Amino acid sequence: MKRREFIAGTAALFISPRPSHGQGKRRRLGFLAIGDGSGKALNQAELAFLDALRSLGWMEGKNLGIEYRFSQPADRLKDSVTELMALGPDILIAPGPQAALALQSATGTIPIVFVGVADPVQLGLVQSLSRPGGNITGMTTNVPDDFFAKRLEILRELVPGAFKIAVLVNPDNPLQKLYFAEEIPRIARSLGVALPLVPATTAEELDIAFASATAQQADAIIDFGDALTYAQAQRIIALAAKYHLPANYLFRHYANGGLSVYGADTADLFRRAGDYVDKILKGTKPADLPVQRPTKFVLIINMKTAKALGLTVPPSLLVRADEVIE
């Protein structure tokens, strides 16, 4: 842990949260998380959402109740949505595109706040980023520049001469389907590389995906980023080591063993989502809250993993890194 994060966390222990909002009816949130079915708890980034609510005076168990549902898309998703709707929540929270689309199909009136949806306009969740319309708003990972191409370029700096880079994808992710068809072929032509897709929709299929990347003689692999792969980070890191594949990941927690990370700071997105929930509970309509883009990004290089892979990290990349793990 960085020193400034430790100091900030320690100081928070001695600061009382803001006064709770009233002593009347307890407000209720519905939280729908979608992963591989193995996780039944919030991840580190999602916990920042609760921290943000507490700092704004919303205390779970006092003036706020949160109903959690953790679902695997193939089996429990429909039931989880039905259960949440039956509870009459004031606001629904949707981490990721699958959860957002599932909740959108269930209600056109209950406010929905999504987090981590790359292109909510393309998915039909909102009319535009500046004017969402309807009952949905939130935090996108969409950035103006071609972010995926930047991740590929970082990986190619780590692996000079890399031509074939496997892309780990989840075909069940609706946004990825759009990206596969439209953007990946264009990026491959633009960078002059081959980008074979290696799909996985379950934890078990991740092993097949990495074996496929090796069979296709990939020089490296890039995890496109998904609820499934987020939950299976350590398994993916182990597979990358097993098959000796240099990799780039989207989320910070992959840095614990993963070669490189470049992506939006998801904890910051969840903190900002907490602010939107506060505003909606106080009467603001989702349609009046523009979808927010990420403002914080992290580039992390794991030198220990680079050494194990026999890679020399160029100084130009180290200078740009927010964090270097020795």
Rank of each mutant, 00 (worst) to 15 (best):
R3L: 15
R4V: 13
A8L: 14
G9N: 14
G9F: 10
G9M: 13
P17F: 09
S20D: 10
H21G: 04
G22C: 03
G22H: 03
G22M: 06
Q23E: 12
R27A: 15
L29G: 04
G30L: 05
L32F: 09
I34Q: 03
N43M: 00
A48I: 00
F49K: 02
L50Y: 05
L56A: 14
W58V: 06
G61S: 10
L64A: 09
E67T: 14
S71P: 00
A74G: 11
D75C: 01
D75E: 13
V81Q: 05
E83H: 13
Q98H: 00
A100C: 01
A100S: 10
A102D: 04
S105M: 08
A106T: 11
T107F: 09
T107G: 09
I110T: 15
P111S: 07
G116W: 02
D119M: 01
Q122S: 11
G124Y: 00
S128I: 07
S128V: 01
N135P: 03
I136Y: 00
T137M: 03
G138L: 01
P144M: 04
P144K: 06
D145M: 07
D145H: 13
D146F: 02
E153M: 12
L155G: 07
E157C: 07
E157A: 10
F163S: 12
F163G: 09
F163A: 12
I165L: 13
A166G: 12
L175M: 10
Q176Y: 07
K177M: 05
Y179C: 03
Y179W: 11
A181Y: 12
E182Q: 15
P185N: 08
A188W: 09
L191P: 01
L191K: 05
L195D: 01
L197P: 06
V198G: 03
A200H: 03
A203H: 09
A203R: 14
A203E: 11
E205M: 11
L206P: 06
D207F: 14
I208P: 04
I208K: 14
I208V: 14
A209L: 07
F210V: 11
A211W: 04
A213P: 03
A213I: 04
A213R: 01
A215Q: 14
Q216E: 12
Q217R: 14
Q217I: 11
L228H: 08
T229V: 00
A231Q: 09
Q232K: 13
A233W: 05
A233E: 08
A233Y: 06
I237A: 06
A241G: 12
Y243F: 15
Y243H: 15
N248T: 13
N248I: 15
R252Q: 12
Y254H: 02
G257S: 08
L259R: 08
V261W: 05
V261L: 05
L269I: 01
Y276I: 14
D278T: 02
I280G: 04
L281K: 06
G283A: 04
K285N: 14
P290D: 10
Q292Y: 04
K296M: 07
V298E: 15
K304P: 03
P314Y: 05
S316M: 02
S316P: 01
L317W: 02
L318G: 10
A321I: 02
E323C: 12
V324H: 02
E326D: 11
